[in-house]
Design a protein around this nucleic acid. Sequence first.
DNA 1: TTGTATGCGTTATCAA
DNA 2: TTGATAACGCATACAA
Lengths: 343, 343
Amino acid sequence: MPVPTITDVAKKAGVSLSTASDILNGKLKATPATAARVREAARELGYRPNALARRLRMRKAEAFGLVVPYRRPLFSSALLTDLLAGIQAEQQATGRNLVLAAGRYDQPGEVYGGDLVESRAVDGLIVIGTRESYGRDAGRDVRELRRLSCPVVWLHVYEGQEPVDRVARAGPDAGEEVLRHFAARGYASVGRLTNRINRAPGERPEFEPFRKRLEPLGLVSRPEWQGGGEAFDGAAFHAAMELLRRPAGERPRALLCEGDDLAVAALQAALGLGLRVPQDLALASTNNLSLSQSAAVPLTTAGAPASELGRAAVRRLMELIERPDQAPQTVEVPGGLIVRAST
Amino acid sequence: MPVPTITDVAKKAGVSLSTASDILNGKLKATPATAARVREAARELGYRPNALARRLRMRKAEAFGLVVPYRRPLFSSALLTDLLAGIQAEQQATGRNLVLAAGRYDQPGEVYGGDLVESRAVDGLIVIGTRESYGRDAGRDVRELRRLSCPVVWLHVYEGQEPVDRVARAGPDAGEEVLRHFAARGYASVGRLTNRINRAPGERPEFEPFRKRLEPLGLVSRPEWQGGGEAFDGAAFHAAMELLRRPAGERPRALLCEGDDLAVAALQAALGLGLRVPQDLALASTNNLSLSQSAAVPLTTAGAPASELGRAAVRRLMELIERPDQAPQTVEVPGGLIVRAST
DNA sequence: TTGTATGCGTTATCAA
DNA sequence: TTGATAACGCATACAA
């Protein structure tokens, strides 16, 4: 017998199948001698329950899926890295398995993880994304996944109409907090680095909405002080260079970066141009990633730590798996402004 | 019937269980009318085979595990990020599921993934690590995992005595290539930034072995030009600052960084100190990570791309799962020196 | 307290 | 070509 089953254990211990099962699962009140014999037999045989059989019988996969319908290679962003770290850490505590949803990132219309659910390989799904990665299709994606009638938690993502279980940052908008901080510090002119990826390359983010946010705080900006691009391909760095390569009066006093990885790119650019941070340029960002601590100049950042968002998503999913028929709920993770050397 | 089984499909199509199964699996030669009826019934019912039942019957998990016995939080290093990206990309092609091994990273002695294998949740394992993360326990870990008699591919890791299936870089040592490049460029004095984590904080890497490598190339160094630390917690950055904060004659002309993330940290430090790269300081690293392209100054790097190592590991594992009784083999991934602006 | 019988949803075997 | 039946390994209702 190459790999022992519970039947082998029972046989060796001289008890019946169900007795062995009960004892090994702690379902039996007391059986001093028998229990010891069964446990001993299991140990000697090196018995390990077959997870597949157990799951089939229990009608539970004891696993959850992780969906990353990103439009670029998985794991390439610093935000994802932190989210994953949190999810991984919390998952270890659950004893469940974590299955990565196989899906091509280059097909924006498709929602992944459905096959995982339909084939009963997982009990629930955590969907990672950003508002930007979905754009106007977010509602469709949500409806599609809801059709599965399986627990789904949306992570750091969706702020549309449909009620979904999701994890979000608590409190005021992180960008708002940063701007208020800028105002308090007396940084009157503010630029902005953003990463939304639905924009064409080179296309600037809309200026007017941003200006409207600055107005009540007494801050000013200019259209050419906006820049957009991802950190991973160097676009953010170049956008920052473009933005900062202006004479002292022509560039912003402070830069709001929508994402700590963008702030790191901006920091590199600033240092490369000989600007001192924060004396010549103040920098702050909105994702509260772990890398914000280890930047050349530690970064001021706002919002709940991304890894905590990941943890919260796992916890919420476990709740939903336990008691599936709950009303959709938004779990809020607290987090405020962390002031570091960059401002 | 909330979720239809193949029995439901068979019933609806008016055929037997086994007929339906055979047709849906393409095992039946030809059955023009019946086949159509069965397929139609499956479609109407929205039938999806239960992966758990299938796997139990087939005695195959149709999944593989990914073990990361790192001593710090998973996903926190740029190397891991690239490896994972490659693994993820290739895994999508296999149709198998990718299960992350639940294991605490802070217990160095333990090898993870064993429970995944023993509970038959996966058909094989990819173990990620670095030489450094194992130290002298690598041999024990290998033996422990071999006891499972299940396909295991060691990724980017192990260079010990025991024959194991592993993926490695082809060709000359990447560090060697970088040093030769330094010599060719005429950078006579060379420093070194390393990340091996088995060293106590503040402890310098051994100098003598490094000096011996430099000698035949006509390069020189000094003990105080060595620095060690991880990138993710800022230690590498500070080590680099320490190292570069010396007057022109007292610091190395070029810096070999063992990992592109260390090179980025060094780059930030150099720029922060007002050094021009490569005019004042040349930088090159050894991991060939994707981030080497997007650094403030694009980095010269050597070695096979990390993502390719990940892909190769998955491919090799699939081979081993198909035909398990092969002799251990080292898959070599080609890669050379990529010269960019930093040298 | 322990044993017997049954089913979870498949695929495989073999007879019809 | 099709269908009945037997596993796969486990957990559990129920009988003893």
